[in-house]
Nucleic acid binder design. Structure first.
Lengths: 248, 248
DNA sequence: CACATTGATTGATCTGGATCAGGGACCAGG
DNA sequence: CCTGGTCCCTGATCCAGATCAATCAATGTG
């Protein structure tokens, strides 16, 4: 598969393995939660294409590519970003296992940004037209799609307000912990999949500022950082710095 | 109607007037565009509740209110915002005629923010559960809803990147022009419905900075500002300042 | 009318975080 | 082993925009 065509639609492969995984992914779990029968679940699974693993650095799509599919991250981390004409990069988000990519493309016919694997990535790919058609027959799917789209609207919270660098980075880390934990992964001890520069471009900071703040958080005893490895030793402390951003 | 319950569902009033207006609003225009027959259009219109006019300062909903309906602005301007525990306000957006409010509440059962009328406002209100049900029967409606939700995901573009105050304010004004024009309103000469403070809280600036920049834009000959009235005399000029933000 | 209130403007000063500059740690390839 | 290339860290300086402060214009209000 060519590097830039990971979300290009391929012949469907609804094998036992894909089916098994997809019982844990966003859509089919919506079905299971609501007790849909096996026949309907199969209707869903036939739409799912199991992609990857894709090597670090592989682009899932690039800005302007025709929109064909959305995807759920199965393993690994995906960065979405845009680049301005001066070559400066704005990171739009990081997508961890269990999270969706490509929702913002639904309203256009092209992807509005780039998506790249930060580490080896496996995906569940869904043809959007097909899943939308299915959604007209299975209300649970439609409802879940509305929910997922709506969730994404409010996602940028830590970037909206006029917060300090310290508040934004603390919130970023605290949210990472929460997101990993929600998916059953280790929340307090993990490897940051993205470079300092990526964090900086996401939080609108200089990479130097990210470095200095991580050092400060470590001096405060909230985390310990060793290259890309981070251990959250005082989550409460982090949350207390992030309280204005997270508002709870 | 009580001030804080403007989006509370009331007995449906699908009178001739509402029906006439709603031929211009987001959902029914989706139907008309796709040539749906009159029977189906009536199915849609029966769900629409025609609200207002609501006086300036009236809250359509407050953070934490139970989510019941989304709404399209018919006339006037609505500001959505959140307030942190120190009382500082973050403006999430301004909603002009033809634009939707409440989409970010779909994924929860409560509104995640406040919405207030900045000038007298008239709305089209839709019960979300009912329109979702209708969407399972009319694919055009479902598709339009997916589109509208998806559009909102990418909306925050001018707040994401690390742009200068000048770039953000120029982009804000240029987008206002574009949004008014799209709805057939005068794009080059209009009244800013929001206070300087609101613009500042939206763009993460101090109100003083907004004042100074408006003055600078005036000195550059791009606009002329007189209290809340603004005339865009050199749109190209504004766009040239905003080019990094708008990326086209 | 005088008087208070609210929003906008302008000037003076301060500062958080960017930028500039220099190293150091780690890894890959030869 | 060395060597070049990333990525990361740390210190010194600088500046865009915040903050502080004063004034002014417009709109009530009794």
């Amino acid at each position: 598969m060519s590097p830039t065509a990971a979300l290009r639609l391929a012949p469907l492969a609804a094998d036992a393995d894909a089916l098994n995984f997809c019982a844990t992914c966003a859509f089919s779990s919506a079905c299971l939660d609501q007790g849909y029968d096996k026949t309907r679940l199969n209707e869903l699974h036939i739409l799912v294409d199991h992609v990857g693993p894709l090597a670090e650095g592989t682009h899932l799509f690039r800005e302007g590519d025709p929109f064909e599919a959305i995807a759920a991250v199965r393993t690994g981390t995906v960065k979405t970003y845009v680049v301005d004409r001066e070559g400066r990069e704005t990171v739009l988000g990081f997508h961890l296992p269990g999270e969706l990519i490509g929702l913002s493309a639904i309203s256009r016919d092209r992807y509005p940004c780039n998506a790249v694997a930060l580490e080896p990535v496996a995906l569940c790919r869904f043809s959007f037209p097909e899943i939308a058609t299915l959604a007209t027959r299975i209300p649970g799917i439609q409802q879940r799609l509305f929910q997922l789209l709506s969730e994404d609207i409010g996602k940028a919270s830590l970037l909206l307000g006029d917060f300090t660098a310290e508040e934004r980075l603390a919130a970023f880390l605290a949210l990472l912990v929460r997101r990993y934990r929600r998916r059953g992964l280790s929340g307090n001890r993990f490897s940051l999949p993205m470079a300092r520069t990526d964090i900086a471009n996401y939080l609108r900071l200089a990479p130097e500022t990210v470095s200095r703040l991580l050092r400060r958080f470590q001096d405060l005893g909230f985390v310990s950082v060793e290259r890309r490895f981070i251990e959250i030793s005082d989550e409460k402390g982090l949350l207390s710095l992030a309280v204005h951003v997270l508002r709870n």
